[in-house]
Write a protein that binds this DNA or RNA. Structure first.
Lengths: 195, 195
DNA sequence: TGATTTATGTCCCGCCTCTTGACATCTTTG
DNA sequence: CAAAGATGTCAAGAGGCGGGACATAAATCA
C-alpha cells in the first residue's frame, strides 16, 4: 500500500508545478517568482527550494511534466497506424500542431522575457530531448516489431531533432513537414524492414 | 490562503473517515479494526488514535460527517416550500426515506455486531441529536421568518425526536409519518405565526 | 554615481506530525 | 490455562515544513 505521506508528497509537487505553470504561462519565466509559487500553493519559499533546487529546476520540472503529457498524445498518433511510415507522418504532424497550440511552448519561445526559458528547447535542451528519445523509443520498439530496434531508434532520433527544430524555428505547415520527413525517412525504414 | 498543510490535514481525516465508513458498512462496528483504518489509508495505527482518540471517536466522526451530508438533503426539502407546514412535511418524509436507504444507518441498526453502534442513535445519541438541532435550527430560523425563533426551535426539536424514533424503530410509511407530524404540529405553527 | 529595492540561493533551528516499538489490559479462542 | 488478537497508552526518533537571517547580484531610483 502506498503511504499517505508518499501521496501527499506527490500532490505537493504537482500543485507546485501547477502554480509554476500558471505563472510561466501568464508572465514568462523571468516574471516567475519562487515566493509566488510557494504562496499560491500555501507553502513556504524554502519548500519550493527543497523540492526543485533552484529556479531553473522548477522550469525543468514543469517542462518534464508537460513533455510527458505531450508524448502521450504523440504516441497515440504514432500507434494509430499499422505502417511505420504512416505512423511517423501522423506523429510528426500531431507534434507540430500540439506545439503550436501549447501555452508553455509559446511562453518559452514567443513572449518577452523568455531569453533563458527558450534555452530549454535549444542549448539546454538535453533534458527534454532525452526524455522524448526514451519515451518514443520504448513506444516505437513496441509498435514497430518489423523494424530492428537500432534502426527505429535512429529514425526516431532524426525525426525528433527535425521536429524540435521546426518547433523552435517554424518552417512549412505541419502537414507539409510531416510529409517531407516521411518521404525522406521512408526509404530507410523500408530498406531495414524485416519479416 | 489556506496552507497546504491544513488541506493535507483535512484530507487525511477525510480519507480515514472513508476507510472507516467502508469498514463499518461492510462489516459492522465490531468488525472495525483501528489498524485496518490506518492501513487502508496508508498511515500508522497511532495516527488513527491521534486523530480520533479512540474507536468510539472514529464512529462518532463518521456519523457526524454522514449527518452533515444527510442534513444538506433534508434542509433542501425543507426550504423547497414556502409554507412551514409543507416544508416540515417534506423534510420529515425526506429524512425517513434517506435513513431507510442509508448504508451506515443500516449497519448501525440492522447488522449483527452492532450492539454498540446502535447506541449512536439511542442512549449515546446526544452528539447526533445536537448536531441536527443546531443545523436544522439555523436553517429553519432563516426560512421561517414568520415563526418566532423560539417556537421554530421547539417545533424542530419535537419533530426531530419523533423522526429519530421512527428511524430506530420504524412505524408507518414515511409519507404517513410525515403527514401525521404535519397535522399534529400544524396548529402550533399556525397559532404562533406572525406577520 | 551611490543608495535602495527586490529576488535568488543558502543556512539554521524550532515545531509539528507521523512512525515505530514496547507495554498493559481485556476478550476470545484453542 | 495458554495463546492470540485487539484496544489504548507512552516515549523515542525521524523527516519535513516554517520562518528568520544572511550574502549576493541586478534593477531601480535619486
Amino acid at each position: 500500500m502506498e503511504s499517505f505521506a508518499e501521496r501527499t508528497k506527490r500532490r505537493l509537487r504537482d500543485e507546485l508545478l501547477d502554480a509554476a505553470y500558471d505563472a510561466i504561462v501568464s508572465g514568462g519565466y523571468d516574471e516567475l517568482r519562487m515566493a509566488d509559487v510557494g504562496r499560491r500553493t500555501g507553502v513556504s519559499r524554502q519548500t519550493v527550494y527543497n523540492e526543485f533546487g533552484d529556479k531553473w529546476g522548477v522550469l525543468e520540472a514543469v517542462a518534464a511534466r508537460e513533455t510527458e503529457r505531450f508524448l502521450v498524445d504523440v504516441n497515440e498518433a504514432l500507434s494509430a497506424h499499422a505502417d511505420p511510415i504512416d505512423g511517423l507522418r501522423a506523429a510528426v504532424e500531431r507534434a507540430l500542431n500540439l506545439a503550436a497550440d501549447n501555452p508553455l511552448v509559446k511562453a518559452a519561445l514567443g513572449q518577452p522575457g523568455s531569453d533563458q526559458a527558450s534555452q530549454l528547447l535549444t542549448t539546454r535542451g538535453q533534458q527534454v530531448l532525452e526524455l522524448c528519445q526514451q519515451r518514443l523509443g520504448i513506444h516505437v520498439r513496441e509498435h514497430w516489431p518489423e523494424v530492428p530496434a537500432e534502426d527505429a531508434t535512429a529514425c526516431v532520433d532524426v525525426a525528433l531533432r527535425v521536429v524540435l527544430s521546426h518547433i523552435v524555428n517554424p518552417g512549412a505547415a505541419p502537414a507539409a513537414v510531416a510529409e517531407q520527413i516521411a518521404q525522406v525517412l521512408g526509404p530507410f525504414l523500408t530498406s531495414r524492414r524485416q519479416v
